[in-house]
Nucleic acid binder design. Structure first.
Lengths: 236, 236
DNA sequence: AAAAAACGAGCGAGCGCTCGCTTTATATCC
DNA sequence: GGATATAAAGCGAGCGCTCGCTCGTTTTTT
């Protein structure tokens, strides 16, 4: 079994690591040459943007707010992006990229065990959104206001994780482990419970719920809903 | 059993009826005297606001957009609200009010039958959000940007529906119908599945899912998760 | 001293909102 | 019933301000 701590030990999702990836991806437009400088400043920019945008919305966050809070000047900001929308797309792109990387590679040992694979998917999704909480809140809440390109990216990313869940369910049904009338509908219902962890994280925290506890209870709820009604349960 | 059609027959949630209630509530600040005129114009204003705000966000919708699309002049708009924020609060207040009214009064016949009461709650919540879809999307998506008063209203409204679900679950556990390790956690998990219907309605529509079908599958999923694992199921 | 990075005043556009004015509906009088 | 007076409703140019963004200049690094 896994825990949030173990998840964090396996993946470097620090602001620096994430911004290094952003720099690679946008090397063409970022005008600052020295990587060390660029990464440090990107970190300040992204950190501040996530804070401000999650507080009052990306659109309501002015670039003057951003200069004041980040300590960088207006001109310095525009060495890293060529428009406010580009800044938005930088953050979104990184979120989608990490999702693909982390969720797209389930341990091979789970290939033949759909129950464990389902657990791994739910757990990993939850831990990932916990580790990059402000990033995911940003991507989720601003999605509507994305330029078309961004909206499509967000939609396809969501569909990918959904179909991964549906696959695990279908596999479980095929092996006689699960009883699910409609696997893709079940996946559609499971997704919002995963998203609720980061969308309403303040509420969960207020109730004293940790990521590990939420993961445990969510998995129990889902397993109760999909498991065959027989005497012997699949071992935890 | 119920259906979306029957729900609509029982509740008048037309734009006119809803705007009549808004007029009552804000009679003090609305400067237009004749109710017929006021209601008709409020309907135009709210309709347009919901369309534009749900397309690109309330904050990004300018009042000039609103004048063009609604056909009313700037001055005319300000006979109905004294600031853009007031317009927002008018819509939010109506959503919260209707939720209290419709969900707050379950049929008395269900008082002693927790399984039916749970079904009624889920179904009614779903049908309500279907009937007032743009209103709920608005309230949900703009929540973060609400003035403090509005955020508190939204939070307390959500907690109310959650505790109604938790009550039905707890009642079912007490009567030996349900097996739920933690009823309030279960309610917390159920809520986002309800909200997903209107938050991602376009996706559900694309899959050909009707409100009745979604209600049926959601209820089946929840019941499978909470029902005691015995031979005889509570009759549908 | 050359190159890289950061600076921040200033631009035009667009914002929420106001207010003096016009148009439309209703009440009053002969 | 038409003329007149009053109230109600609607209008939209324009105000002060903030927005995203630019660019000539200054500071820092090499």
């Amino acid at each position: 079994m896994s825990s949030f701590q173990e998840f964090q030990a396996r993946h470097d999702l620090s602001m620096e690591a994430l911004c290094a990836r952003i720099l690679e991806r946008h090397a063409a437009t970022i005008r600052v040459k020295k990587p060390a400088v660029a990464i440090a400043n990107l970190a300040r920019i992204v950190e501040t943007t996530l804070t401000l945008a999650n507080r009052k919305g990306f659109h309501s966050m002015s670039l003057r707010d951003l200069t004041e809070q980040s300590g960088l000047s207006m001109g310095a900001l525009y060495a890293y992006f060529d428009s406010k929308d580009t800044l938005l797309m930088m953050i979104l792109g990184q979120v989608v990229g990490v999702v693909e990387e982390v969720l797209g590679r389930p341990p091979e040992a789970l290939a033949t065990d759909p129950a464990s694979r389902l657990r791994w998917l739910l757990e990993t999704h939850l831990y990932l959104t916990e580790a990059m909480h402000p990033w995911f809140v940003f991507a989720y809440m601003e999605a509507k206001a994305f330029p078309k390109e961004g909206r499509e990216l967000a939609v396809s990313s969501e569909m990918m994780t959904e179909s991964m869940i549906a696959d695990a369910l279908a596999d479980g049904v095929a092996r006689g482990l699960f009883a699910v009338p409609d696997v893709s509908m079940a996946a559609v219902l499971i997704k919002p419970m995963l998203q609720d962890w980061y969308v309403k994280r303040a509420k969960h925290r207020r109730r004293g719920v940790t990521p590990d506890l939420y993961a445990e209870q969510l998995i129990a709820f889902v397993e109760a809903a999909v498991r065959l009604r027989t005497m012997q349960a699949a071992g935890r």
